[in-house]
Amino acid sequence: MIKSELVQRIAGQNPHLYQRDVENIVNAILGEIVAALARGDRVELRGFGAFSVKNRRARAGRNPRTGEHVAVEQKCVPFFKTGKEMRERLNRPQPEVAAK
């Protein structure tokens, strides 16, 4: 599923909203998560998971093709930890898969 499909599915369940509104809603949600991470904040969505920012220290890397040494600067990377309920839902017995 891509973003436009997500928008369509939500718009289908909310006939009183324009598709453009739904698009703005999805973008507002994602934008809020991105803004929080850019500030270095954590985003916790119970039942889904939590986004956080992890710090990676500067290190000496190598160009894998040439073997050359390169300095890698310290940086921050986004990190996602799956929530408990999500984890359980992914591993719940699925009738349609089991039937195959």
């Binding site: 507002a28 949600i29 809020e32 998560i33 929080a36 500030r39 904040d41 954590r42 985003v43 916790e44 969505l45 119970r46």
Partner: peptide, 8 residues
């Protein structure tokens, strides 16, 4: 800070 559903 921790951003939650309420903030979204």
């Amino acid at each position: 800070r921790t951003v939650t559903r309420a903030d979204l």
